[in-house]
Nucleic acid binder design. Structure first.
Length: 276
DNA sequence: AAACAGGCCTAAA
DNA sequence: TTTAGGCCTGTT
């Protein structure tokens, strides 16, 4: 992988898979939006950035230091997705799904933001999830600047924990509001230590998350996969259920994917949903 | 208008 | 252990 400075951007030339469109559209994150010119702007880990692709290279705003301290890990550049993609192709269906989703990478997201976002995601569609997360950020997030524009980071757990249920009303998050508040309080009071959870076994981390009201199997799996770096998690939502029903009438044992189960899930999800 | 959307919780077998 | 119904809200 080659990395060089190019104006106010860093130019990365990966040797494996990278597709901004697929990364931001495979359902794992909610704060990246496409610009008219095809680039994407988003806020993650407290800072805003713009990402674009051109002739096999990826351009990310910021300095080499920003890249090395933040974006390299966020975009999981330490992992080889071409290799992992091939390991996902365990049968004809997965070969097709992984080819279709070529370019997907699993982001290493902020733990609290992921926890909160996936609580919000339950029984909701993506535009509405994005809207609620965006509103939270604009109301209570810290400001961060990019190219002369002001953006808002996702508010930290302490900030949200200080709010009342009434103050959450502008989110229109419905019955999820108490779940959000409870999670914020658990995290800010240190009764739920997400950093510590990331060092536990997958099953134990998931079990602990599911002790919180509003967090079931699916949400917990999303949190451990997308923010606790547990790549064998395999979240099952309605799209994956459909895919399994259609292509694996006898069921699917996700352990065949091993450490790539989460990536396989992303390929299946994107293949199932994007073609609709 | 009624049903549904990237679930979860509770009650009931 | 599995299943049904309700839940806030916005959209179709």
């Amino acid at each position: 992988m080659r990395i060089e400075t190019a104006g106010n951007e860093i130019k990365i030339t990966p040797e494996d898979d990278f597709s901004a469109k697929k990364i931001f559209d495979c359902g794992q994150c909610f704060r990246w939006n496409e610009n008219p010119d095809g680039s994407y702007t988003g806020v993650a880990l407290g800072r805003a950035a713009r990402v674009r692709e051109d002739r096999g290279s990826v351009y990310i705003t910021g300095t080499i230091e920003d890249f090395e301290t933040v974006w390299s890990d966020y975009f999981d550049f330490g992992s080889n997705y071409a290799r992992r993609r091939k390991l996902c192709a365990v049968d004809d269906y997965m070969l097709a799904a992984s080819e279709y989703g070529r370019g997907i990478r699993i982001l290493n997201q902020d733990r609290w933001e992921a926890l909160c976002s996936f609580i919000i995601s339950q029984c909701n569609n993506i535009p509405r999830i994005k809207k609620i997360v965006e509103t939270m950020s604009s109301l209570w997030g810290e400001g961060t600047e990019l190219e002369g524009r002001e953006y808002r980071a996702f508010p930290d757990a302490e900030r949200v924990a200080a709010l009342s249920e009434r103050e959450l009303e502008p989110l229109r998050s419905g019955y999820r509001a108490p779940y959000i508040l409870n999670a914020a309080r658990m995290v800010s009071e240190g009764r739920l230590d997400l950093e510590a959870l990331s060092k536990l076994e997958y099953a134990e981390a998931k079990r602990r998350l599911m002790e919180l009201p509003g967090i079931g199997e699916k949400v917990a799996n999303c949190v451990v996969l997308f923010s606790l770096r547990m790549p064998s998690a395999f979240p099952i939502d309605v799209w994956i259920k459909k895919a399994i029903a259609e292509h694996y009438p006898n069921g699917l044992d996700t352990s065949v994917f091993g450490e790539n189960a989460g990536l396989a899930q992303q390929y299946m999800f994107y293949y199932q949903r994007d073609r609709k």
